[in-house]
Every structure is written in C-alpha cells, then in structure tokens.
C-alpha cells in the first residue's frame, strides 16, 4: 500500500537559530489516526505546519499523494492545501462571521478569487455545509456569530470547516488543549468518528497521553525535534513516556502521566 503522506528527514531551523525539527521521517497510510505526543516546544506544531507548508521546512521532503509539497508553485499548493483539513488549538474562527460563513471558508480553495470575495458559494456547497453542521450537532446555530459560541462549539465549527474542504488528510494541532476534560472527550469523539466514517487519515497532536491511548491507531512521540517513539499504543511503556516527557526533574508530572496511562489501559 502506498502511503498518503510521506515525510522524509524534515528539518526546521528558525531564524533565531532554534532547531525545531532535527530530521523527522514517517509515513502515514490511509485510515490511520495518528497521535503525536510530546511536551511543549518539542516541535509538534512545527511538524504539522510543515506538512501543509504554513511553515517552510529548512530541509527534507514531504510527499502528499505523490506530490512533493515543498516544490510546487502557489497554484498547486492551493490544490494540496484544500485536500488537507486543519484544526487549531485556538479554533482560529473568524469571530465576527456566522457559523455557516466560517464553515463555507472550507470551500474557498475550490473557488475563484471573485466568487470567494463576494460570498458566491454554490447552492450545493451551502447545503453541504449545513449537512456537515448537522453532523457536528450545530445545525441550530448556523447564523450565530462565531464569537458567541462556547469553546467546544467553536472547535466543532473548526472541524466542520476542515470537513467542508472534503479532505483526505486531517491535521489537528492540539485540538483539545484549550477545553475542559468533558468537552475534550466530546470533541475528540466527533473528530474520531468523522475521520473514521469519511475514511480521512488524521494526525493529531495531543498533550494528554490518555486521549492518545484511547483514540490513536498509532502514536508518535517527539522530543527536541526528533522522533523517539513510533508504534502501537500498547507498545508505549512507562519508561518511554518518561523519555518523551520529562527530563528527570519533574517527578510529579511523570507520575501524573503514568497514572493517566494506567487509567486508560
């Protein structure tokens, strides 16, 4: 089986000399639901943003469905991006616009500049957006302004916007890091179910090991810009969690993570 996404030896050095990624390689296959775990500053966000070129990697190759994304021109990049949905920690909705307007932004990649600017979404796109909102349980809120929603609702709109793109790959950058535990569970349920139903591969960066263990079909652990673990959830042992997260100082955090794991398994 050919991978849908192939990341090879990707490095990213920021202008200030920070090494965010020091050579990361992995393949993603269709239907995988991959969780990327690692502490803050380990390079999770940079990695996800390199995949759809929101950040240009310094070195390495990223091949999405047979196309090298770092080599394409602007027009082709749009075509690649519209096939990769993205969900953000801070939702990144346009606050002053309505829910359905936000969802329809997912269609912009398929439209001309003129049609995009003047909101000339097709009837089909509009109905499609409505159906997607039904799937995330927000069909009653379509005309609410995005800034009037709760955090969990906002993230569901975020999922809906990504889904409107009709993506074959979903990138989620800490989708539940700003939510309370109960809402987090609900949002992860939506994300997981939708990716399963629509056969969308997903790469989700997570802070919480318990959520990674519950949903992921595969877990990648990152530390200091390097992959230190790549395998099935059940292969993730306590000592590996230690290695990914803590540098021997924070005993409390370490124990907390082990406890989470014990509860999850």
């Amino acid at each position: 089986m050919k991978p849908i996404l192939s990341v090879k030896d990707v490095k990213k050095i920021y202008g200030n000399g920070t090494y965010a990624l020091r050579g990361v390689s992995f393949d993603i296959y269709e239907g995988e639901f991959v969780a990327i775990i690692g502490s803050s500053g380990s390079g999770k966000s940079t990695l996800l943003r390199c995949i759809n070129q929101l950040i240009k990697p310094t070195q390495g190759s990223i091949v999405f469905k047979g196309t090298a994304v770092e080599k394409v021109n602007k027009c082709e990049l749009r075509k690649i991006r519209r096939e990769i949905g993205m969900i953000f920690q801070h939702y990144n909705l346009i606050d002053r616009l309505t829910v359905i307007q936000n969802v329809l932004h997912g269609r912009l990649g398929y439209m001309s500049d003129f049609h995009g600017i003047f909101d000339l979404y097709s009837k089909e796109d509009r109905w499609n957006a409505y159906r997607i909102l039904e799937r995330v349980g927000l069909e009653k809120e379509i005309h609410k302004r995005a800034d009037q929603l709760s955090g969990g609702q906002k993230q569901r709109v975020g999922i809906a916007r990504a889904l409107a793109q009709n993506p074959s790959l979903m990138l989620a950058d800490e989708p539940i890091a700003s939510l309370d535990p109960v809402t987090s569970g609900a949002v992860m349920d939506y994300l997981y179910r939708i990716c399963r139903e629509d056969k969308i591969s997903a790469i989700v960066s997570l802070h919480q090991v318990d959520f990674a263990l519950k949903y992921a079909t595969r877990i990648i652990g990152i530390k200091h810009g390097l992959i230190v673990f790549d395998g099935k959830p059940k292969e993730l042992t306590d000592s590996i969690i230690d290695q990914i997260y803590v540098q021997g100082k924070d005993e409390f955090a370490k124990n907390e993570l082990k406890l989470q794991r014990a509860i999850a398994i």
Binding site: N52, L54, R78, K79, I80, R81, R82, E83, I84, G85, M86, F88, H90, Y91, N92, L93, I94, L97, H105, G106, L108, G109, Y110, M111, D113, G116, I117, R161, A162, Q165
Partner: peptide, 19 residues
C-alpha cells in the same frame, strides 16, 4: 490564527484578506 486558518483551507491571498 485568522490568516493561518484561511491559508490552510487553500484560500488564495486575496481570499484570505477578504475572509
């Protein structure tokens, strides 16, 4: 985040500005 989100959907520069 607004700019990032619009770019990620495949919106062009002009569309990102407008939306």
């Amino acid at each position: 985040g607004n700019i990032e989100a619009l770019k990620a959907t495949g919106a062009s520069w002009v569309q990102t500005m407008a939306k």
